[in-house]
Amino acid sequence: MNQNLYFEDIKEGMEIPTIKKNPTTQQLVKYAGASGDFYQIHYDMDYAKNNGLPGVILHGALKNAFLGQVITDWIGNSGKLKMLEVQYKGMDLPGTPVYAKGIVTDIIDENNINCDLWLETDKGDKTTVGKAIIQLPKK
């Protein structure tokens, strides 16, 4: 597990460690079951194609979970996630890795640290963007 992160460890402009996710069709089925979101565009290829999609696509809320994990992996057990915002800019398909990334944008105080987050493909497309506000302990 990661070490605890402290307020003194961060500065504006610093990058949050990237996490790589490798979504598969199996993961989409598991997420459908775990979340209760059974919209067929996430697991039924014919249904997805009949709705004008290139194939089954990732649940938006699964991508939201990836943005949550990039923060919680980074802040460890001492930090707190206070706000997590997500907006979907493009579709992601299973079989295509995505990288959850972030940057510290604005430090107001130890209770209000603003970050930008996003999911990026190998081609550099940002398919999902978001923001987080975190709180960190002082040493």
Binding site: M1, K21, Q27, K30, Y31, G33, A34, S35, L62, A65, F66, Q69, T72, D73, N77
Partner: peptide, 16 residues
């Protein structure tokens, strides 16, 4: 169990 299954589905292995 629902939390565990959710964590497995998002492939987040945080022991918490």
């Amino acid at each position: 169990g629902a939390i565990r299954r959710f964590a497995e589905a998002i492939e987040d292995n945080n022991p918490l």
